[in-house]
């Protein structure tokens, strides 16, 4: 009698639990956004285009939002574009390098020294000519391409510079990938990350250099230092390989010992 009551209780409890789990879904959580995005995001055409372009950019990935560059109050819709709250709007063409250079000071310096920078205000390119205004991607060699460069001058010289830098870029990407992998395995990569950071910066500063010989010379120095880091990482790979061989021997030994113990047990059972 008691068992049958218990059984009924179990069935009811399990059914109720299953029903609740089936019909209830997790509550949706809204994403917090600035008033700039709330207002411009849904707008069609020119008003909403910057938001759409920005969403896939490196700035968006790193939490750099509208107000980070354009100023204003991102939390107060009424005063979001008030100069009193630091809104600076969009710069004139000649003011673009200074606008971006508030954060990218070193790159602005390189740009202003280069042929591109010297032609600022005289039809020369600004930051947004090559990088775009809102759809800014992580700088890479693909920014130097025939379609983009030949808008203003022949591509030959740019192609030479690109070729000199290609190997360095490949090495940096490869080392970055390796460091990321080792980092995910608990390897202390801090020293390598710092070295790579410094070398990547030296490499990026070449992006605005138009002296082919200088680019080749500097690329060679950077590559030498990158190879040293790469060698250290390859040593880590070799160390991991040795560990795996040792592991295979340990596991194999244990399985053989287990088999012997099992066979020994069977002789006693018989």
């Amino acid at each position: 009698m008691r068992q049958s009551a218990t059984n009924r209780f179990c069935v009811i409890a399990c059914s109720t639990l299953l029903l609740l789990l089936t019909i209830l879904s997790p509550a949706a959580r809204g994403q917090e956004e600035t008033v700039c995005i709330q207002c411009h995001g849904p707008q069609p055409g020119k008003g909403g285009a910057p938001v759409k372009a920005w969403r896939g950019s490196i700035h968006a990935d790193n939490g750099i939002s509208c107000h980070s560059c354009h100023g204003g109050d991102p939390n107060d819709a009424a005063n979001a574009m008030s100069p009193a709250r630091g809104f600076v709007g969009t710069p004139q063409e000649a003011g673009i390098p200074a606008f971006c250079g508030r954060c990218h000071a070193g790159i602005m310096e390189d740009y202003l020294k280069s042929a591109h920078g010297r032609a600022l205000g005289k039809g020369g390119p600004t930051c947004v000519t090559c990088h775009g205004a809102h759809e800014v991607k992580k700088a890479n060699l693909e920014l130097i391409n025939e379609k983009s460069c030949s808008r203003c001058h022949p591509y030959d010289r740019a192609a030479g510079i690109k070729e000199a830098m290609r190997q360095t870029e490949g090495l940096i990407t490869d080392i970055e990938r390796k460091i990321e992998r080792f980092k995910g395995e608990g390897v202390d990569t801090e020293r390598h990350e710092k070295s790579l950071f410094s070398l990547r910066n030296r490499y990026h500063r070449l992006f605005h250099e138009v002296d082919t010989a200088k680019v080749k010379r500097e690329s060679s120095h950077i590559q030498q230092e990158l190879n040293t880091i790469n060698q250290t990482l390859e040593n880590l790979d070799e160390r991991n390989r040795r560990r795996k061989i040792a592991g295979a021997m340990v596991v194999g030994g244990l399985l053989v010992a287990a088999l012997i113990a099992h066979l020994l047990k069977r002789t006693y059972d018989d």
């Binding site: 040792a246 287990a258 099992h262 020994l264």
Partner: peptide
């Protein structure tokens, strides 16, 4: 011996994951 067999099989699986 059954205990030893089970322990050794466990250790083999355990070290397989560790290594």
């Amino acid at each position: 011996l059954q205990d030893v067999t089970s322990i050794l099989i466990y250790l083999a699986i355990f070290f397989c994951v560790v290594f």
